[in-house]
């Protein structure tokens, strides 16, 4: 039995011996030759104002050219307490994770490091995240072991509360920029006001505009309204005006509109509902002008002027606006 225990003990010693023999202190290794490793980091924007409990994250991307390769077991260990000149500085690596991408001539490591602050002071004090040392091995020569140093990041640890009376200008960290007043609110209000003004101006131009440069502006009644103003004040001019308004109604309805299908037209184009009575008046005028000269119309003594204002109100309906009343349109 004693023999057996002795044999097991010897076997354990033999198995553990190589691992202890390879345990290497990174800082004693030579530096990696220049040009082998390139580094880029994503550091926190804020470098001051940290206090106990804060977690600061860094992201380091290393590209290592062949034949060197990262010994992944040399990556920093979670929970390791950082020291400076042998003293615990109160910053601990809380988590580390990495991804690896291998290419023919290089390998890329993306290492995410999260440090947690476990210290505080009555006044601001400097501290640093890192440095971290990584070991690299030459794959063509296993005896060629080198180290690479991930540079440290200087930060400032701030007190939780101000101790005594402090003149803030004297106490400001040079790492922190000047204090600025926030103008976000005012900027937002200004932008909203400018937008509102622009929309109002566009709306005004849309209502008063004569030319088709906005949606619905070039509608058939807009064109007819413009054309009516150019017609002579004669019976022939009146006939043309009535004909143009007929054409606009037909075009709007996408069918021929007559006095007996005005209801259908308004059902299809509810925008024109406020004009129902006036459309009937228009048909009484059309009847007199084109079909039955003996009949009477109720559009007043100046039918061409009435037609113009009728076309304008129809144009408003066409644009989805509420038309002016006949009195408003004539300026009374």
């Amino acid at each position: 039995m004693k023999k057996l225990i002795r044999l097991v003990y010897i076997a354990l010693l033999v198995n553990l011996a190589p691992q202890t023999a390879f345990a290497i202190d990174s800082q004693n290794l030579p530096d990696v030759p220049d040009g082998i490793v390139s580094i880029s980091t994503i550091d926190p924007v804020r470098l001051v104002g940290y206090t106990v409990g804060d977690i600061i994250e860094r992201e380091v991307t290393l590209t290592i050219k062949a034949p060197y390769k990262l010994i992944e077991t040399s990556l920093p260990i979670t929970g390791y307490e950082k020291r400076y000149k042998g003293q615990v500085i109160g910053i601990e690596l809380k988590s580390v994770s990495h991804t690896k991408k291998e290419n023919k001539n290089s390998s890329t490591f993306n290492i995410k490091l999260a440090y947690q602050i476990f210290t505080n002071n009555v006044v601001a004090k400097n501290a640093a995240l890192g440095p971290e040392y990584l070991n690299l091995i030459n794959t063509k020569n296993s005896q060629d072991l080198v180290k690479y140093r991930i540079p440290s990041l200087d930060i400032a640890i701030s007190p939780i509360a101000i101790f005594g009376q402090v003149k803030i200008e004297n106490n400001m960290s040079p790492l922190r920029g000047p204090l600025l007043l926030s103008n976000v609110k005012e900027n937002k209000a200004l932008k909203i006001s400018i937008g509102f003004l622009a929309i109002s101006l566009l709306g005004l131009l849309y209502i008063l505009g004569q030319h088709a440069w906005l949606p619905r502006m070039g509608g058939t009644f807009a064109k007819t309204y413009r054309a009516l103003g150019k017609l002579p004040a004669t019976h022939e001019g009146l006939k043309q005006a009535v004909s143009k308004v007929h054409a606009s109604l037909n075009s709007s309805a996408n069918m021929s509109v007559f006095s007996n299908n005005v209801t259908l037209f308004i059902a299809q184009k509810p925008n024109f509902a406020p004009m129902a009575d006036e459309i009937k008046l228009f048909f009484s005028l059309s009847r007199q002008v084109y079909f039955e000269p003996n009949s009477a119309h109720q559009v007043g003594n100046n039918p061409q002027q009435w037609l113009k204002s009728f076309a304008r109100r129809c144009r408003d309906c066409e644009r989805g606006l509420t038309p002016e009343t006949p009195n408003q349109a004539s300026g009374k």
């Binding site: 007996n260 009847r287 009949s295």
Partner: peptide, 11 residues
């Protein structure tokens, strides 16, 4: 009660 034919009469 019309003295002339309108399109509506034809319809």
């Amino acid at each position: 009660e019309r003295t002339a034919v309108l399109p509506e009469d034809i319809h």
